[in-house]
Design a protein around this nucleic acid. Structure first.
Lengths: 210, 210
DNA sequence: GTCTATACAGAGATAGAC
DNA sequence: GTCTATCTCTGTATAGAC
């Protein structure tokens, strides 16, 4: 992940945590230093200023699991997996919601989304567009292969993506209040089941009931 | 809406705008006063302190259009409208995204969601739970009436609600960068079309193709 | 109710000894 | 690289005249 070491890494990690929990503006350099266990001024030996820490975190988001829903595999390699591929993507969202490092990055992203233009660019291009486009290619191939019904692949990709995002936000929000996430967590799988069942082309040989 | 008048109302409105755009913490009392056109200290004749403004805004969220997706009508009165009811709910989300007052409240809510427990309670109970529950009752009645397929109504309600929320967030985010929202705006209707078409029970008299 | 003036605290950042 | 000390600025809030 981030190629930082020693104190700089500690500062980085503490900042991610505090920025995610309280927001960038509300977090003080003194607090970060306290978590790390050094004096406030020592921070400046590792980062030019507070904003440089923020920039470093945003730069590193691209290396996080936040955006790799497909584990770098190409659509044509994987589309044939059908429902189990969707299950896998859905499960990635769930994993991110529970992974104690990546959930902080997600929370940080949502926390600062409206305060930082670079972050919005990341959100839009890397988190949203890239994944939705990849999804729509997968769906397009599934349509060609007559696994699912034909329709606008991009609309379909958005319809699959958006509930997963929402449920992830639900989980992270619930965790902020130490509330149970059990019910929300089941929605990831229920979404995939519901979704796949509505778009797949039923096998006539098995479903010949009429 | 809010029953404030004169300067107090101006302070309130300016605060909503600034809190939504920059966040509560990053907004200074001086800035608010500047927008209103008074001296910073004059704020304190109307509000005890900065936090009191925040509290007032959160208190008033319940009176906003943010949560009234059904215009206060009861499920049994409206469920028979079928798809056009869903269209109406979907359209409410779209209207909120574009209404220049309510979109600020939505942005404010998302902006401060992780920084304010009272706001999270509002989000959960009034914005999410209340609407999803009402939706699930509507879907349940539609199932009873054999308008749509039978399944878990709560899951269905979540599946209908979550994309609308996501598209709303998309629009508000795009507007923050003055980007075009045209494509995102079409997704509200496409969602309803897609969704309804997948759950409705087809009329045998019309669809007798086999 | 608004103004000017000011108190007070907190935060970011730098200087220089070790 | 870390420490103590300190500077400077900014922001919230209050006092008191008008």
């Amino acid at each position: 992940m981030s190629k930082l070491s020693g104190t700089k890494k500690k500062i980085y990690d503490a900042s991610v945590k505090l920025f995610a929990e309280k927001g960038y503006k509300a977090t003080t350099v003194r607090e970060i230093a306290k978590v790390v266990g050094i004096q406030q001024s020592a921070i400046y030996n590792h980062f030019k200023n507070k904003e440089a820490i923020l920039d470093e975190i945003i730069d590193n988001l691209s290396n996080s699991h936040l955006i790799n829903l497909f584990e770098d595999k190409e659509p044509k390699e994987i589309y044939k997996k059908g429902k189990s591929l969707l299950k896998q993507v859905s499960n990635m969202f769930k994993l991110i919601s529970y992974d104690t490092k990546t959930d902080l990055l997600f929370r940080f992203m949502m926390q600062e989304l409206f305060n930082n233009e670079r972050l919005r660019i990341f959100y839009n291009e890397e988190f949203y567009q890239k994944n939705v486009k990849k999804l729509s290619i997968v769906f397009f191939m599934m349509m060609q292969d007559e696994m699912i019904e034909s329709m606008d692949p991009l609309v379909l990709a958005n319809e699959f993506f958006s509930p997963l995002f929402f449920y992830q936000l639900q989980i992270v929000r619930l965790k902020a209040d130490n509330k149970s996430t059990a019910v929300a967590a089941t929605l990831f799988e229920k979404h995939t089941d519901f979704f796949w069942d509505r778009i797949r082309i039923k096998n006539e040989k098995k479903d010949q009931l009429f």
